[in-house]
């Protein structure tokens, strides 16, 4: 376990080496019961035969993955074609989550930068203010958002009263409403890691850059951003991954007219379809996708750190 070494960590001796296994045991047990076992169960279920109206029959079957990738028509007996339905649903979710991540980054980065450059004494207050809305349950915040945004809601009333618009802006039940909802739900996950990174950033480097006639833009791009990159990447992952599986915002703000990954999977267990293996297979495909994304970013980060020495 050379966790410290990769990031050029400082600990060279492990004070607790002798007791390590015992001290780690609780973590392993928790991880084993709450992470590994459910994932393993999901993996197994995805290769079982579906039972009508939920449940599984303990017989090996590839039907769930076949359903995901091959289209056999309404009645299941047409020649197999590539199934675009689920790929479309996955792509829609990725696109929505990506848009929400970019939106969060655009607002979250300046916010974090602003907080980190305040006087040290008031920074905790700003961070505290960021977290206040998140003391309220996510469902309530999402429903409130719907109240605010609707055609006859306060936002449109206000804009019409001040004469900025003549007719309501139609936002509710659109993709933009979903992105807005996801952005709002997960914004602190973007702000906080970036804030932590900017706070550690040594601003004398920016001054040095300015002394060497770097413009503000060049300083940001060549000096600040590379230094705080780990915080930005962490923020993006923390917003993107939960957005990908979210179904509250799509259902309430987007009108649930189209499946997202989260609602598609939910429907397999709670809806009429009752197709557990297919729900498990879709979850496994989602999980694999997220793992691949995380592995690529981890590898690139490791490469970048190696290059820097």
């Amino acid at each position: 376990m050379a966790a410290g070494a990769a990031s050029g960590g400082s600990a060279t001796t492990d004070t607790y080496a002798s007791a390590r296994n015992i001290l780690l045991l609780p973590s392993w047990v928790v991880l084993g019961i709450f992470v590994l076992a459910p994932v393993l169960m999901m993996l197994i279920y995805s290769f079982l035969t579906k039972e009508f109206r939920g449940g599984v029959i303990w017989e090996f079957s590839l039907a769930a993955y076949d359903q995901f990738f091959f289209d056999r028509g309404l009645f299941g007996d047409d020649p197999a074609k590539i199934e675009w339905t689920y790929i479309t649903i996955f792509w829609r979710s990725i696109w929505q989550a990506g848009a929400a991540t970019i939106l969060s980054l655009a607002i979250g980065f300046p916010t974090a930068y602003f907080i980190a450059t305040r006087d040290e004494a008031v920074r905790p207050i700003w961070v505290f203010l960021i977290t206040i809305p998140y003391w309220v349950n996510l469902l309530i915040r999402t429903v409130s958002m719907k109240f605010l945004l609707r055609d006859e809601g306060p936002m449109n009333d206000f804009l019409m009263n001040i004469g900025l618009i003549d007719s309501p802006i139609h936002i509710i039940n659109t993709n933009f409403a979903v992105q807005l909802g996801l952005f709002y739900s997960y914004l602190p996950f973007m702000v906080l890691p970036i804030y932590a990174a900017v706070e550690r950033y040594n601003f004398s480097m920016s001054e040095a850059a300015a002394d060497l006639y770097a413009t503000k833009w060049v300083t940001l791009r060549r000096i600040v951003l590379p230094a705080i990159k780990p915080g930005v990447i962490a923020g993006c992952i923390l917003v993107f991954v939960p957005s990908l599986g979210s179904f509250l915002a799509p259902d309430l703000l987007g009108g649930a007219k189209n499946f997202m990954i989260g609602s598609l999977i939910e429907e397999q267990f709670k809806g009429n379809a009752g197709n557990w293996p297919f729900g498990a297979a879709a979850s496994m495909i989602l999980l694999s996708m997220v793992l691949i994304i995380l592995m690529i970013t981890a590898r690139q980060q490791a490469k970048a750190e190696k290059a820097e020495g």
């Binding site: 309404l74 339905t85 007219k257 189209n258 499946f259 009429n272 379809a273």
Partner: peptide, 17 residues
């Protein structure tokens, strides 16, 4: 029955895809 229901499930998925 199961076979008929499968078609209705497919129609529903088509509707919401």
């Amino acid at each position: 029955d199961e076979q008929t229901q499968a078609v209705y499930d497919q129609i529903w998925t088509n509707l919401k895809k």
